[in-house]
Amino acid sequence: MDFFVEGLRRGAQLLLGGDAEVLGITLLSLQIALVSTIFACAVGIPVGFLVGTSRFWGRRAAITALNTMLAFPTVVVGLLTWGMLTRNGPLGGLGLLYTWWAIVIAEVILAAPVAAALTAAAVQGIDPRVRRTAMTLGAGFWTTHWAVAREARFALLAAVVVAFGRVLAEVGAAMIVGGNIRYHTRTLTTSVALASSQGDFALAMALGLVLFGLALTVNVLLQLFQGRGHAA
């Protein structure tokens, strides 16, 4: 037990002392998570809208595919992305492997289906009269969808938050395509993995606390949105 207490104490010291490396890792993690979430939602939310609101041939298959992609093992996505970006891979020429952009690409592949599936569920749950009402009042394609999105706004915010949380907590793909390079691609999760394997329990604990704090914040936000969604 002393071991834990000591780890926590030293971890807290590192955090409160404003350790530059810990701060850098945290900021990089947030940067990657934010950029990945923006791209994942930019792709996922429109796809979710399409699947959730339109009737087209193969819609059922699309929903099944989305739900399967939710359960994609992250290391497999990491591996496939690595294969694409490695020097001999189809996108090897871009020279992105072992940069933070490589992590973003892998995380977008992981988080976009989350955003899409949750968006589809959110807009499917919206009263069909919303669409008809907007249309009969003269709304065009975009305004109609905007009206639906407005009615589903809390569920859509929840989709964004869940996608962000997934990216922030992800370790397997980040490790494979980022390479855990100090000051460049070392994120909270990959450095926790490294520190613990090196036996630096205090550092791992400090980073773990940061990660835990962020995860908590994300989930509190999610609760808040869901609560308001039910109240509305």
Partner: peptide, 19 residues
């Protein structure tokens, strides 16, 4: 149809009001 909906408006039996 979009142009026509600018001319014809329907009030449904249980109308939906936006938030």
């Amino acid at each position: 149809r979009l142009a026509a909906r600018r001319t014809v408006t329907l009030v449904e039996q249980q109308p939906f009001l936006f938030g």
